[in-house]
Nucleic acid binder design. Structure first.
Lengths: 97, 97
DNA sequence: TAGATAATTAGATGATAATCTAAATATATG
DNA sequence: CATATATTTAGATTATCATCTAATTATCTA
């Protein structure tokens, strides 16, 4: 009945508009930090901060490519979040499609 | 392409664990403020604050019943939120089931 | 109509969170 | 190996948010 930390970190991750924008960008293609940065006005440090929160929630994954780090949307966790959202609103004993 | 205030207020509304708990309680049945309060430790003022944020997002509706106010989950906005979430993660040109 | 009950609003406080600049780390390359 | 480039980390600042107590508003009932 209690909410897990994992669940809480997911809601925290999507609570910020800039992070939602990052997710929306990453759903189209994987990108380096610099490429993500080109969509925003704030500093690289701020972007790093947002990415770390998305990573903590496991909504994104990173891999190294030379000096760059390539961020990708983690679709399975995105799916999981959608499921959690459905459960938030659908009655316990309702059909699950 | 820009996110609406309505959309932002939805994500703000579900960002707090107590408000998610309120929604989870209301999905089962409509309740007066006092009845909702019985599930929590915080003050009535704090509950009022949370309810006002849920109202602003239109995730809940209120009606008067004598001295009490009865809160209900607004299912259509809940559905809308689910749709917004799906769009956040699904590529623009993917099938919509 | 006075007092009781239900809920909200006002105003203050402490905790989180978003952002910045500067410094640090890691990798690539001349 | 020294320097440039990409990104993260540290530490500070400011803004937002959750919470509280006290006061207010609205309704009911004796």
């Amino acid at each position: 009945m209690n909410e897990s930390n994992q669940q809480a970190s997911l809601f925290t991750a999507i609570a910020d508009v800039q992070r939602r924008k990052i997710l929306a960008i990453l759903k189209e293609q994987e990108l380096s930090v610099a490429d993500i940065k080109s969509h925003f006005d704030f500093s690289g440090a701020t972007l790093s901060h947002h990415l770390s929160i998305l990573k903590k929630a496991e909504l994104v994954r990173v891999r190294r490519q030379g000096q760059q780090r390539i961020y990708t949307l983690n679709l399975s966790v995105a799916e999981e979040l959608l499921l959690i959202m459905k459960q938030l609103f659908n009655r316990e004993n309702d059909e699950i499609e």
